[in-house]
Design a protein around this nucleic acid. Structure first.
Lengths: 345, 345
DNA sequence: CTGTTAGCGCCTTCAC
DNA sequence: GTGAAGGCGCTAACAG
């Protein structure tokens, strides 16, 4: 492999052992990250020899025995939403802090996912963190040949932990907020309805609206994107400011507002927009959107917990719920823009 | 490994060989993707046996000989900017389309990067795509023990290809656009100045402003983020609408505008905002920002080319330049919002 | 504590 | 065309 290992020849543990004048096993033990029985004196000699030769252990050979590559799969449909930025950035940093590395699998565009998996290292991960809803937990376990699956896509499974944000509570709070502003009607703007998370949100909205006596005039289906909000704007705004507008993503609410600024100006009144994800932008002057967020630090902490304590997979805790919170826009009762939200810890 | 391989025991090629009644070597040849000397009859038996047992070759064992895990490292400082969403989503999809998988390495928060690398599979990648500027090409090659490094961070190196967008041309166009609007003064809002890409942008702006006779009144340093634009807003807007405002990220320009909406309203006039990244939001009604983008498809195509044709690394093409383009905001001469930009081809 | 031995699963000579 | 044997680099198991 000329491209690999710029130095002439690859240094193996045998070379180190030879130079140190010990057996390969001793060298292996001295070089092991864990504490193994080696005399201090020989260990020092081995380490010196390794240093001198520039020895780098071959991970693949090690894995052949140890059966772990210290790899974690993060499985997503795609990277798309604004809220993904902070989520994946922090999650990857946290995973790396455990000493593991991340294979990012984007299954949105793969038809033969299983075959793809089999032909790559993802086949050998320590655990799979599943955001995508391309398959249920049982299928994911089979595909990864691995029981360590964390469902982060809203799917529940008896044999895999699933971690979800409590959205029903803040959704009820949002609806109550609209009610307090005098709204008695509502319009819903949703995302991909095949997603379990989305289904739960929609159900929660319907329930809260019914419970608090707001009439649901219409549901419009988008895809969480700003662009989809724009294209739905005219239909969404048709009911006028008397109807509160609830979107399952801030980005969609932003699109509704931008494409409809003329409409909105034409019918002045107390327009009430509600979103999801607690994007900083949605707290800005440009977009009067109240939003729903969750405690990202806590969420990530629970995920990482499973990586650090694999025994947690043996008796899955079922559904682990992270608190969510409703944050009114600064213009209607919320804290000033860009103060920290409680949920951001 | 109880957690791995839900089925009772792992099927090896020896099991297949035994069931087919042939030697392991024959089984290996029959199962090989390439054509190897095996009688048609035995090959059929082996394939049937493999199918029956659900045999899946062990990638790690294979890699021990073949020395490739079909892995590509994508090295980033962090995932942070709005523009990262579409870039990484498309890049990862494209890499996966080559049959390879992606290890995403976030080095922004790692102090001992080299040690981290050595202890993970990233050590054994086929190639490293480097967006981060944490190290120069030579160092990256050493750290990955791999000569296949593509520098996407603006750094140049005689022994590694680097792929960059041509930003000088659109920057000159942006300045000319401001000049045509009658601006004779300018304010610059920059990102992290340690980044080579950013240094090139700043230099291009200074040159274009000087060439076209605009006075550079001030430079303000942000970090590409919306929030940094907000905090610089008052200072940036101080010069009034007579000065064109050039930011090296749309997000910063958006922050400047949002935090300064009162200022802007107080001093009416032809405020001229220029950004970078061609975010959809910056083409919206909410933000009158003209922006600079590049041909993302072409950019990704050139990266993928290197993965598909590793021989390209043997004689690096030096700096590969992708065309960039200036897009005026719809409100000042650009195409209507949300038409496709030429650069999105 | 130390060294020898025997694999991990696969592939590739090399004789037959 | 076939099979036995050896090795990729490392580590666990077993004696010493």
């Amino acid at each position: 492999m000329s491209f690999n290992d710029t130095s002439s020849r690859k240094i193996t543990i045998a070379d180190v052992a030879a130079l140190a004048g010990v057996s390969r096993a001793i060298a292996s033990r001295a070089l092991s990250p864990e504490e193994r029985p080696v005399s201090a004196e020989k260990k020092a000699r081995v380490l010196a020899a390794a240093e001198q030769l520039g020895f780098k252990p071959n991970l693949i050979a090690r894995s052949l025995k140890s059966r772990t590559l210290n790899l974690v799969a993060v499985v997503v449909n795609h990277i798309h939403d604004f809220s993904d930025l902070v989520l994946f950035d922090r999650l990857i940093a946290a995973i790396q802090d455990t000493g593991k590395q991340v294979v990012l699998l984007r299954v949105g565009s793969l038809d033969r996912v299983e075959e793809f998996l089999r032909n790559g290292v993802a086949w050998h991960v320590d655990a799979a963190l599943v955001f995508s809803d391309f398959a249920d937990a049982a299928t994911v376990r089979t595909m990864f040949r691995n029981d360590r699956v964390v469902m982060l896509n809203g799917m529940r499974d008896a044999n895999a932990p699933s971690i979800v944000a409590d959205e029903a509570t803040p959704i009820a709070a949002a609806v109550a907020h609209a009610r307090a502003r005098g709204k008695t009607r509502a319009v819903l703007v949703t995302g991909r309805q095949t997603s379990p998370v989305e289904q739960a949100r929609i159900a929660a909205y319907r329930a809260a609206l019914a419970a608090q006596g707001l009439a649901l005039l219409a549901e419009h289906v988008g895809d969480y994107s700003y662009e989809s909000g724009r294209s739905l704007s005219a239909a969404v705004l048709r009911e006028g400011p008397e109807a509160a507008i609830f979107a399952t993503a801030d980005a969609m609410a932003m699109g509704v507002i931008d494409a409809g600024r003329a409409d909105i100006a034409r019918k002045p009144g107390d327009w009430a927009f509600y979103g999801f994800d607690a994007l900083p932008l949605a707290r800005s002057e440009a977009y009067p959107i109240s939003s729903i967020g969750y405690d990202l630090e806590a969420y990530i902490a629970r995920v990482i917990e499973h990586l650090r304590q694999p025994e947690l997979f043996e008796r899955p805790a079922g559904v682990i719920t992270i608190p969510g919170s409703f944050m009114p826009h600064p213009s209607c009762g919320g804290p000033a823009a860009f103060e920290r939200w409680p949920a951001e810890g």
